[in-house]
């Protein structure tokens, strides 16, 4: 399929969803007035984007998101690579990850607050808890895929490097890391999606500032169009991030034939 055709097919599924959303409320198929037609929601989205108060909240959320995802990358990728190359470490850490896996990370925000609240002022405890929850959510996909990538390095590549005279450190930097990179980057793609929903989820649960809080405020005062407008914005951000990321990876890894 040509790129244009692929894009058309993908756009078609979004278009069908949009059409249903527009039609359902107008035809009286929506349960009640809480679901406005899409056109009204989109107008609301434009209004939200024009709202200075929203942009302030967005900046807060973006900083939180970057902090959470950044910590997860800095911790998860090295941990995963180390696990991939050291079976003992893998055996030690894997059960912990398996335990953490099914726990909804957003739900951890409550026990985290209990613990952190004992040691820091409330505002900082809230902020730390939100960032920690985002980091925890992203940690698993990043660590697991980095571990798989590092463990799956074709042994003959390492043998070749060793015969050519490359020492341990160089083999790690020049063979293990590039060989694991595609998997690391596909873990990051999953983490990107996870980071968005944990961000908004944490902000809904522990209210303060941020896009999630803005959304909940709109709900509290019954502005349902604004609730939907922000939701659409979050979804669109996810789509743009994911698509942009996939394109960037294709440029970054010209040698990689597979999907990331």
């Amino acid at each position: 399929m040509s790129p244009a055709r692929r894009l058309a097919v993908s756009a078609a599924s979004v278009a069908v969803l949009c059409g249903c959303w527009e039609a359902a409320p107008r035809l009286g198929l929506a349960p009640d007035a809480s679901l406005p037609p899409l056109s009204r929601v989109l107008a609301g989205t434009a209004a939200v984007l024009g709202d200075a108060a929203f942009r302030d909240q967005l900046a807060v959320s973006a900083a939180r998101w970057a902090a959470g995802l950044g910590c997860a990358v800095l911790a998860g990728v090295p941990l995963g690579v180390a696990m991939g190359r050291a079976p003992l470490l893998r055996r030690l850490v894997e059960p912990l990850l398996a335990l953490l896996y099914p726990v909804p990370k957003v739900a951890l925000v409550v026990p985290l607050l209990l613990v952190l609240g004992q040691r820091m002022p409330a505002g900082r405890a809230d902020e730390t808890a939100r960032v920690a929850v985002i980091a925890l959510g992203c940690l698993i996909p990043l660590t697991v895929s980095a571990a798989h990538g590092a463990a799956g390095v074709e042994p003959r590549l390492l043998w070749t490097a060793r015969a050519a005279g490359a020492g341990r450190v160089r083999r790690l930097a020049a063979v293990v890391l590039p060989a694991a990179l595609p998997q690391v980057l596909s873990g990051l793609r999953i983490a990107l999606a996870v980071s968005l929903f944990t961000l908004v989820g944490a902000e809904l649960l522990v209210r303060g500032q941020g896009v999630g809080a803005y959304l909940f405020d709109a709900y509290d005062i019954g502005e349902y169009t604004r609730v939907w407008a922000v939701t659409v914005l979050v979804a669109a951000t996810g789509l743009v991030l994911d698509t942009g990321y996939a394109l960037a990876v294709r440029r970054l890894l010209p040698w990689w034939e597979g999907e990331v």
Partner: peptide, 14 residues
């Protein structure tokens, strides 16, 4: 001792 592997073992990123 240098080896040419049956499976080539080239670095795909180079």
């Amino acid at each position: 001792r240098g080896i040419v592997f049956q499976e080539f073992a080239l670095f795909p990123w180079r």
